[in-house]
Simulated scan of single mutants.
Amino acid sequence: MSTHSGSNERIKETHPEWYRDVSPMYYLILGSFPPHAKRWDYPFYYPNKINRFWKILAEIAKVNLTVPIVSEKEAVEERFSIMQKLNAGVQNLGKTILRKGTSALDTAIEITTFQDILLILKKHPELKKIVLPGYSSQNSTAKAFLKYINQTKEIEIIGFIPKTLNSGTTFKISVYGRIIDCVVLNSTSTASRISYDEVKKQFEKELDS
């Protein structure tokens, strides 16, 4: 499916079945949606090796990522093992989107349906924190998560969320009789002007607490 508006062609995409459960899961890291398939180096979350996400998580987990990527399957298993070591689940919020062309930017996508994040929250009563990297655009992870909350009846935001989100913004949600902390971080994309060391420091703080 696509809609045409001059040079702004919008193409429907459906998220691949990448989700793999981690148990125990103390942290859930959410993203928005993968880049266009032509940019993938392997079929898993943050599939472009230029993105800093897996390098940061590998350093926090004190493991070395294989370079270069020789086998897509091994690359996926290597990244899943990092998730297991950190007790951190990974999922994207978008299930279906409309994308302008093949852009990898959040500003070029519109989430039309969401993943079932509630199912993950229900399955993992031990979950204590949701990490939201990226907050600038309307379809960034943090803003998309707030839209998802507004569509559900089971999740309630506790307290006040500032109108302008920033790295370090925190809030709590109540769901299934539990309180879960949520924290907004900078994006791991290389398009971000925030340094690698600063983004790593942010993740390290949240995944160690």
Results as ranks from 00 to 15, higher is better:
residue 1 M to K: 13
residue 3 T to I: 14
residue 5 S to L: 14
residue 6 G to Q: 15
residue 7 S to K: 15
residue 13 E to W: 13
residue 17 E to P: 12
residue 19 Y to C: 12
residue 20 R to D: 12
residue 25 M to Q: 08
residue 25 M to R: 04
residue 28 L to S: 07
residue 31 G to W: 04
residue 32 S to W: 03
residue 32 S to Y: 01
residue 32 S to T: 05
residue 36 H to I: 12
residue 39 R to S: 15
residue 39 R to I: 11
residue 40 W to A: 11
residue 44 F to D: 10
residue 47 P to H: 09
residue 50 I to S: 13
residue 50 I to L: 12
residue 57 L to W: 07
residue 57 L to I: 06
residue 60 I to F: 10
residue 60 I to H: 04
residue 60 I to K: 07
residue 60 I to E: 06
residue 61 A to P: 01
residue 63 V to N: 05
residue 63 V to G: 01
residue 65 L to H: 05
residue 69 I to P: 00
residue 71 S to D: 13
residue 76 V to T: 06
residue 77 E to A: 08
residue 78 E to F: 01
residue 79 R to W: 09
residue 81 S to F: 05
residue 82 I to T: 04
residue 84 Q to E: 15
residue 84 Q to F: 07
residue 85 K to T: 10
residue 92 N to Y: 03
residue 95 K to R: 12
residue 95 K to Q: 12
residue 97 I to T: 07
residue 99 R to H: 10
residue 100 K to A: 13
residue 101 G to I: 12
residue 101 G to K: 09
residue 103 S to V: 10
residue 108 A to G: 09
residue 108 A to S: 14
residue 108 A to H: 10
residue 109 I to H: 04
residue 110 E to S: 14
residue 110 E to K: 09
residue 111 I to P: 00
residue 120 I to A: 00
residue 121 L to Y: 03
residue 121 L to W: 00
residue 123 K to T: 08
residue 127 L to K: 03
residue 130 I to D: 02
residue 133 P to F: 08
residue 133 P to N: 05
residue 136 S to A: 07
residue 136 S to K: 07
residue 137 S to R: 01
residue 137 S to M: 08
residue 138 Q to R: 14
residue 138 Q to C: 05
residue 140 S to F: 01
residue 142 A to Q: 00
residue 142 A to V: 06
residue 143 K to I: 08
residue 143 K to F: 06
residue 143 K to G: 00
residue 144 A to C: 07
residue 145 F to L: 08
residue 147 K to D: 09
residue 149 I to P: 01
residue 151 Q to T: 12
residue 158 I to P: 03
residue 159 G to E: 08
residue 159 G to M: 13
residue 160 F to L: 09
residue 161 I to R: 01
residue 166 N to P: 06
residue 166 N to S: 15
residue 167 S to A: 15
residue 171 F to S: 08
residue 172 K to W: 10
residue 172 K to H: 08
residue 173 I to D: 11
residue 173 I to H: 12
residue 182 C to E: 03
residue 182 C to Y: 02
residue 185 L to W: 04
residue 192 S to H: 00
residue 194 I to S: 05
residue 199 V to R: 02
residue 200 K to M: 06
residue 201 K to I: 03
